[in-house]
Structures are given as C-alpha cells and as structure tokens.
Simulated scan of single mutants.
Amino acid sequence: MAKNLTNSLIDRKNILNNDYALNKIEDDLSLGGYYWKDEFWFTKNDAAKLFDIDIRTINNYLSKNEDELKSNGYVVLKGKNLKEFKQCFSDEIYLNSKVTNFGLFNFKSILNLAMLIVESEKARQIRSRILDIVLDVIAEKTGGQTKYINQRDPEYLLGTFRENQERKKFTEALNKYIDMGNYKYGYFTNRIYECIFKENAKEYRKILNLEKRDKTRDTMYSEILTNIASFEAGLAYEFEIESKTKKRKLTRDEADEVLNRFANHPMHKPHLDDARAKMASRDLCFRDALHYKLESYISSVDKKDFDKFLGDVSKSLEQQIEENKEIFERLKDK
C-alpha cells in the first residue's frame, strides 16, 4: 500500500528506527554536510538550499515538529559545543560572535525533515528514494520473501516447536472431551485465532495474501505462536475439568461457554494486547500488510525488532535448524 510519509508518524518512525536502511540511504543520497563528532551535520541554511525552500519554512517545520526532530537528532548548540563547532568550521560558516545558540540537523533528522516538507519537490524525490531503499533492504535480507520474515527470529524455531507440542495435546483434548464432528478442530482453531488477534484463519490468510500451499502458522511470529500454545494448553485443561465435572463430553454450546469464560479472564489481556500490537505493527512495517481489526494496536517498530529480523542476530530457518539439531532431538525424546 502507498505510504504518505508527510502525514504518518508511524511510517516515519519505521524508517528512522531502521539503521540497516539508514546506512544504505546515507550512502545513496550522499548529501554531504559538515563532519563533526562522527556524524554529518547540516545547518538551517543547508536544509533550505537542499530542499529549495525559504529558511522561514524550515523554521516553521521546526516549530511544529520540534519534539519529533529532536528525538531524531536535531540539536541546538550552546556554550562549549557551539564554540567548538565555530572553531572547526570558521572558514566555511560565518557565525556572528553574538550568536549564543545554533541549530543543526544530523543526517537522521535531515531525513526526518524531508519526510515532513510538502512544499519541496526535492523533498518528495528524497522520500521516494527512501521508500525504494527500505524495500530493497528488506528484500535483500529476506530473499524477497517477507511472507516468512518471521522465521528469521532466533526464537522462532523454539516457538514453533513449543506450539506444535501443545497443539497435539489440544487436539487430543478436543477428541476426548468435545462431542462434535471432525469440524471441531478447524472450528476451535478459528475461535482461538479470533480471541488472540481478532481474525479467523481465512481473514488472516487473505491479509497476508497466502497461497493454498502456505501453512498459516509458518508465517506467525514467535510471540504469537507462544500465545497460541499458552491458549491451547489452558483451554485443553478447562475442557478436561468441565467434561469430568459433567461426567460426559461437552456439546459445542458448552465448549463455547468454557472458551468464552477462559478468553475473557483478565490475566490474558496484557499478553493479548502485546501479541496484537506486535503482529499488527510488524506486518505493516515488514510485509506492508494491514490488519484492519487491529489498527488501534499499530505502533512503530523499535530497533530491537529490526535487529531481530534484519540484523546479524537474524538467521534463516535452515541455519537455525542446523545449529539446534541436537537440542531438538533431545526435546523430542522427552
């Protein structure tokens, strides 16, 4: 889906928190600047020239977006720092001796400014290039398969193993304690999905544009799999208790009543809120997939997630299997 960086704080944060993309963007754009304290810096005049706009427009954006720009590196030099900067660049920048504070953009905050300015064609071109590079970086790291970017999480393999174990116990509980036909397995799977992330399997697959051969759970993040495993384990226990209390298998209505009571327990809320936020936010950022029923949970993706799925700690599923082969053999034998 098309992204309009000028009016979406979340989309701007998702780029500015992505150090892997920022490094590529800096190399690609080659904006120049004054190299000071291990970074390139830009004055307000530099910004005005770069975007071909009046410096008053720069000041207006600073006034309206000061907190955001400062959070991404814009600084106002004073005292010792201002004196040092003057000494370093006295031949290139004239600063009146009466100036007691001086604003500077680092590379990250100058990109932030480019994402805000609507009056500048140059800013629009930079935004377009930024979006292209972000897509290229993700495609490069994932081999073009963002569908399975979840599997690059070092915790994914353990999460899916745990969920598979609990899934077996859950289906055994459905067989022993629920008096329904074979459709009960798909029925309660959908009910659990709806409880955790407000979508049934069909809705989820449509949003991620999964093909018939794709397995739904192969695309889920480790935290989601852990929530499903926890939910299945708890629900299997509740079905068993209720069935033994009644000394018979449960009807669908009775099982639904147990599920609703279990799902609405307050202990689930923090975990469900966290799972929904992670899935909705990551899918929008990495997969460009919007979970409409979870829009209120969407926030920006933090740096740890970029490390987890794009950084050095991220690994292909094949690597994880090879590295953990002995561990999972031992777990399987228990």
Score class of each variant (00 low, 15 high):
residue 1 M to W: 05
residue 1 M to A: 08
residue 2 A to H: 10
residue 4 N to T: 12
residue 4 N to G: 02
residue 5 L to C: 04
residue 9 L to K: 14
residue 10 I to S: 05
residue 14 N to M: 09
residue 17 N to Q: 15
residue 19 D to K: 14
residue 26 E to R: 15
residue 34 Y to D: 01
residue 35 Y to I: 10
residue 39 E to R: 13
residue 39 E to K: 14
residue 40 F to Q: 11
residue 48 A to K: 06
residue 49 K to I: 01
residue 52 D to M: 07
residue 52 D to V: 08
residue 52 D to S: 14
residue 52 D to Y: 04
residue 53 I to K: 06
residue 59 N to I: 07
residue 65 N to E: 12
residue 73 G to D: 07
residue 73 G to L: 05
residue 74 Y to A: 10
residue 77 L to G: 02
residue 80 K to G: 00
residue 80 K to C: 00
residue 80 K to F: 04
residue 81 N to C: 01
residue 82 L to D: 07
residue 84 E to L: 07
residue 85 F to Q: 03
residue 90 S to D: 11
residue 93 I to N: 02
residue 95 L to R: 05
residue 96 N to S: 14
residue 100 T to F: 03
residue 100 T to E: 13
residue 101 N to P: 00
residue 106 N to R: 03
residue 108 K to I: 04
residue 110 I to Q: 04
residue 110 I to L: 12
residue 113 L to G: 02
residue 114 A to L: 00
residue 114 A to C: 09
residue 117 I to N: 02
residue 124 R to Q: 09
residue 135 L to H: 08
residue 144 G to D: 08
residue 145 Q to D: 13
residue 145 Q to S: 08
residue 146 T to V: 13
residue 146 T to L: 06
residue 148 Y to R: 04
residue 149 I to E: 00
residue 153 D to Q: 02
residue 155 E to S: 13
residue 160 T to C: 04
residue 161 F to V: 09
residue 162 R to S: 09
residue 167 R to I: 13
residue 169 K to N: 14
residue 169 K to V: 07
residue 173 A to F: 00
residue 175 N to I: 13
residue 177 Y to C: 05
residue 178 I to T: 11
residue 183 Y to A: 14
residue 183 Y to P: 04
residue 185 Y to H: 15
residue 186 G to I: 09
residue 188 F to H: 02
residue 189 T to S: 13
residue 194 E to L: 11
residue 194 E to Y: 00
residue 194 E to S: 14
residue 196 I to F: 01
residue 196 I to T: 02
residue 197 F to P: 00
residue 199 E to I: 01
residue 201 A to W: 02
residue 201 A to P: 01
residue 203 E to T: 07
residue 204 Y to V: 04
residue 206 K to N: 10
residue 206 K to Y: 06
residue 210 L to I: 03
residue 210 L to T: 02
residue 210 L to R: 03
residue 213 R to D: 13
residue 214 D to F: 01
residue 215 K to N: 10
residue 215 K to E: 13
residue 216 T to F: 04
residue 220 M to L: 13
residue 223 E to P: 00
residue 223 E to Y: 12
residue 227 N to M: 11
residue 227 N to T: 10
residue 235 L to V: 03
residue 237 Y to E: 15
residue 237 Y to N: 13
residue 238 E to P: 01
residue 248 R to D: 06
residue 252 R to S: 04
residue 254 E to R: 07
residue 257 E to S: 11
residue 257 E to C: 05
residue 258 V to A: 06
residue 261 R to S: 11
residue 262 F to R: 03
residue 264 N to E: 13
residue 274 D to G: 01
residue 275 A to W: 01
residue 277 A to E: 11
residue 277 A to V: 04
residue 281 S to W: 00
residue 283 D to F: 06
residue 289 A to H: 03
residue 290 L to I: 14
residue 296 S to C: 10
residue 296 S to T: 14
residue 299 S to P: 00
residue 301 V to P: 01
residue 302 D to V: 09
residue 305 D to L: 09
residue 308 K to E: 09
residue 313 V to E: 15
residue 315 K to E: 14
residue 316 S to H: 12
residue 318 E to W: 05
residue 318 E to F: 05
residue 318 E to D: 14
residue 319 Q to P: 07
residue 325 K to Q: 12
residue 328 F to E: 03
residue 331 L to N: 04
residue 332 K to S: 11
residue 333 D to F: 06
